[in-house]
Computed example of a mutant assay.
Amino acid sequence: MLKYEDLTVGKTLTVDVNKLITRQQLQQYAKASGDLNPLHTDDEFAKKIGMPSVIAHGMLIMGQLGKYVTNLAGDTATVKQYKMRFGAMTFPNDEITCVAVVKSLSEHEGKSCAALTLYASKEQDTIVGTGQAILEFH
């Protein structure tokens, strides 16, 4: 459980390693999101446009990073802000690792807050997304 009093600026928080991205997951996400672009589901199409294979939806990776932040907050904090920028492409069989570093600690309207810098990466520290979140502690 994350506690405000245990945080310090520069502290790296718990690392979360997600399961491998699968083709089935990409198919399911395409249907659920309504983003049926064949770049995410059809290898032949992806190869025709110069890609080695299909790529994961950027929003799927954003969701994984968002889930990580929500899990960090747990019952002790509320996610007050979350944003992400996309980096490198994610392919089937990539494993996404999420990590947060405490950027700053502050008080806002009588509540303790922690600003986090977020990273989603795959093998060899290739960044697939970076972001920021603010946690407000109860």
Rank of each mutant, 00 (worst) to 15 (best):
M1N: 13
Y4V: 09
Y4R: 04
D6Y: 13
T8Y: 02
T8V: 12
G10R: 03
G10V: 02
G10K: 07
L13A: 06
L13T: 02
T14F: 14
T14E: 15
T14R: 08
V15T: 10
V15M: 12
D16T: 14
V17D: 09
N18G: 04
I21R: 00
I21K: 00
T22C: 07
R23T: 11
Q27S: 12
Q28E: 08
Y29M: 05
K31C: 14
A32P: 02
S33N: 09
G34A: 09
D35R: 01
L36F: 05
P38S: 08
H40T: 04
H40C: 01
D42T: 01
E44D: 15
F45C: 01
A46Q: 09
G50S: 02
M51T: 06
M51N: 03
M51Y: 07
V54N: 01
V54I: 03
I55H: 00
A56Y: 08
A56Q: 01
G58K: 14
M59F: 11
L60F: 08
I61W: 03
G63A: 13
G63H: 03
Q64F: 00
T70V: 03
L72W: 04
G74A: 00
T76P: 04
A77L: 00
V79H: 08
Q81V: 08
K83R: 15
G87N: 04
A88I: 08
M89E: 11
M89W: 05
F91N: 01
F91T: 04
N93S: 14
D94G: 01
E95G: 05
I96A: 12
T97V: 02
V99W: 14
A100L: 00
K103H: 13
K103A: 12
K103S: 12
S104P: 05
G110D: 03
G110W: 03
C113D: 07
A114Q: 03
A114K: 09
A115E: 11
L118I: 02
L118D: 09
A120N: 06
I127D: 15
I127G: 03
V128W: 02
T130Q: 10
T130P: 08
T130Y: 04
A133D: 00
L135W: 02
E136L: 10
E136M: 09
E136I: 07
F137D: 00
F137M: 03
H138L: 15
H138K: 15
